[in-house]
């Protein structure tokens, strides 16, 4: 195994946590500090009055920004850039959205069921114009259940590294290499949880199928939207978003 000794496992923990801190987009303290900053009733209705396509375009841009940070996270993970480029792309294509969904629990406030979006906190109603009430509800529910685990920043770092480095993604050319990296990251995560007496967290993490299902719901909704507004997607959606999802 590439990371056999305790020192090497500890170095990997440090690498993952540092990579995450450098690419987390918004610092946790800032997200917590902003919690009192809620969208006013007028601001919420202005979001609700937007056309479906404008709101989709906005969300596609916000999601793409978040994904760019996940790409940077991946690039800094020890071993990721040593994988062949096909596998780097397979892992990011399959995992970037899942990582964004996990990261979202930091931007979610369970006290009032709001999420930080474009500078303030708002609830599900903020996204009504998208016409995807069920998907938005599922994403909020997911954030709610994950935020109940009170994951530390280091735990989110290690957990999301494992969401990304998943040797079971179809289409990998060097599956063994990804397996080795995944195995090292599992050791690192377990080691960190042991050290902080948090092993109980492992059994409470959401099943992989839950993230997969949220991602496929997003793809389904995008397909419907793209069918109705092909020109909007073609002309106004970020190229990276289209590359990953459409």
């Amino acid at each position: 195994a590439p990371y056999a000794s305790l020192t090497e496992i500890e170095h990997l923990v440090q690498n993952v946590c540092k990579s995450y801190r450098e690419t987390c987009q918004l610092r946790l303290e800032e997200l917590l500090r902003q919690r009192a900053n809620l969208f006013s009733r007028e601001e919420v209705s202005s979001y609700q009055r937007k056309s479906e396509w404008e709101m989709w375009e906005r969300c596609a841009h916000r999601l793409t920004e978040a994904i760019q940070h996940v790409v940077e996270f991946a690039k800094r993970l020890s071993g990721f850039m040593e994988l062949c480029q096909n596998d780097q792309i397979i892992l990011l294509k399959a995992g970037a959205m899942e990582v964004v969904l996990v990261r979202m629990c930091r931007a979610y406030n369970a006290d009032n069921h709001t999420v930080f979006f474009e500078g303030k906190y708002g609830g599900v109603e903020l996204f009504r114009a998208l016409g995807c009430g069920e998907l938005i509800g599922s994403i909020f529910d997911f954030s709610h259940s994950l935020s109940a685990l009170r994951l530390s920043e280091d735990e989110i770092a290690l957990y999301t590294a494992l969401v990304l480095i998943n040797a079971n993604r179809p289409g990998l050319q060097e599956k063994r290499k990804v397996e080795q990296l995944q195995c090292s990251l599992e050791l690192a995560f377990h080691h960190h949880l042991c050290k902080t007496h948090r092993q109980g967290v492992l059994a409470q993490l959401p099943p992989k199928g839950r993230l997969r299902s949220l991602c496929s719901q997003h793809l389904e909704k995008l397909q419907v939207f793209q069918h109705l507004h092909p020109i909007v997607v073609q002309a106004a959606f970020p190229p990276l978003y289209k590359e990953l999802f459409s």
Binding site: Q68, K75, M81, Q88, P239, E243
Partner: peptide, 14 residues
């Protein structure tokens, strides 16, 4: 096929 992703990945390791 994954032009943007390729570019982002090749764009230095920082």
């Amino acid at each position: 096929k994954h032009r943007i992703l390729h570019k982002l990945l090749q764009n230095g390791n920082s």
